[in-house]
Design a protein around this nucleic acid. Structure first.
Lengths: 177, 177, 177, 177
DNA sequence: AATGAATGAGTGTTCATTCAT
DNA sequence: AATGAATGAACACTCATTCAT
């Protein structure tokens, strides 16, 4: 009955398998055969869903950056919202560490892959804009927060403390805690 | 005069060529043939100096982490020394951006390469110890500084401002500026 | 018509080409590129049929030992059957000398290749059992016959005479000739 | 004192190392670097003693065939001398099994190496002449004895029994035992 | 004699991609 | 969509040989 899967499911399964492969082996170790195998299809069938390896990679980049939208929560004050943003990211680093490994891989690949760079540039542009609203347009602080997030993302155990300490330093210990 | 290079020079030239190749193409694109070509020798001769590709990679890791020692300067106060440390790193990011690209590549590779991980673990241990002395043993701040450094290292134009802002937040604007 | 060969044919063609290459150049000179070329395919396609060179070698060993089964004919007396066995082998040595060259190569390789050894050990076990029935369980004579067969197999012109002389010595000149 | 060895010793050591390497890995696995290492010299120095690998191989062939001379002992009768010959060979197979492994390797290599073939052809010619004297010029029996010797040489445990049984069949059980 | 550096042809193997079915 | 066969460029690594010292 389901001998033939809906194309969208297959595509998503392939992207997910590629995502996990990158998390484990890096772009360095991404193999279409392995991805196809993990998705349960022949290695040549993969080209019916993604013409080239690059197409699959770009789909993975889109999938990996998608969860980053909606990480800036609503709230009464800017400080409160910054703390919320930072807390959401910390929780994601704990529950989905692979996501941030892949994001780190993507940042490196973006340096030599214009198409990947275009995607993440757009994502980061949105992030910078959102952070700007929380930090009163202080671009120095925006860059600092981004740096901290990128700097702890490969170290989930340390993430929460570092991120909250950063928020403390910026917002001050006024309200919370 | 230099028709025949000293063996040490050849080894160093190969490590340097590999370093630059990683900076440009990542470990993903590291090719022994290209490295050998850049060093001006036949691609097979490389194995006379490094038995395997892995051996060359480890030599590159050692070469890339070496400049990180002696980045904590002496000084009268801890705050002054932190500012000095951060300033040295910022300057290195501007003058040698490739170094930090390679270090970022190494951090990712360390996740799946135990031998590389062993080398950088030792380096980071020393870094943490040194920072601990500058930050009164506040390990939370130590991790925060490390995060900032790692987070800006792929963005040289932003590095100096972010790093000094971090020092300001930690040390306060007391003395300097 | 035969633009596209059936897969079984390709595999068999590769085994045959490898067999002939070993007959000509020994395992020492067995080259996958040459085998692929002789079978009319690209040298990388060979790995589509045999994952490794070793897999191909084992297929050759199986192909080379297969004709050895059914070399002990039925007959009224044990002596008659021994003469028949010996005659069949002598004829094979004359018509297919390459087979025995390859078998000699295999015997040598079995000394350092456990997987090849496992295959020929099984074959020889069957041979010893069959000879035992023809020689009244006299294991000394069994080993002697085996030694003679192995000893003449690289010298087809001498094979028939030596083998029949051996049978004469064992069976006696009673009935035949 | 003996920092520099006499050239003859070095040559002999190299031949011996090559001999043992062939016994263990076959001609297939003969590596000049390994031979040189086993003889305690640099791998390039080997070419000062043997211009090419082929030269070394021919030296090994000469060394491996040398012990075969003087295996036909004097004695009162032809039958007694045949038994002596066979006994000497059986003892050699037990005490120096490597020698016969190498001889088997050489027989196979001779098929595709004219220079090796020339050496062993000369050796076999002498063997056939000697055996002819013991067997009253019966060339059929000469070939049979040669076949048995060649056929058991890779199976030292079986050698003695097979060889003596052969002598029994030929000479008869008259005198001995 | 001896060494270390260098060479270059070659070795099995990998892998994204193509194509006929 | 899906498959298996096929391709060819590329890969790290090997190895006998050469050469300058």
């Amino acid at each position: 009955m389901n001998a033939t899967q809906a194309p969208i499911d297959r595509r998503a399964a392939l992207v997910e398998a590629a995502f996990e492969s990158i998390a484990r082996h890096g772009f360095e170790g991404l193999r279409l055969r392995e991805v196809a195998g993990a998705a349960g299809i022949d290695h040549s069938t993969i080209h019916h869903h993604f013409a080239t390896k690059q197409d699959l990679i770009e789909a993975v980049v889109n999938r990996a950056t998608a969860p980053l939208y909606r990480t800036i929560p609503p709230g009464s004050s800017a400080g409160e919202r910054l703390r919320g943003h930072v807390r959401i990211l910390a929780e994601m680093m704990e529950t989905e560490p692979d996501l941030f490994v892949v994001l780190a891989e993507i940042d490196l690949r973006a340096r030599r892959d214009a198409q990947v760079r275009a995607i993440i540039d757009r994502v980061e542009q949105g992030w910078r804009f959102g952070l700007g609203q929380l930090l009163d347009g202080d671009t120095g602080l925006v860059e600092l927060v981004i740096a901290v997030v990128k700097g702890v993302r490969l170290d989930p155990p340390a993430a929460r403390a570092v991120l909250e300490r950063t928020a403390d330093l910026i917002v001050g210990d006024e309200v919370e805690r």
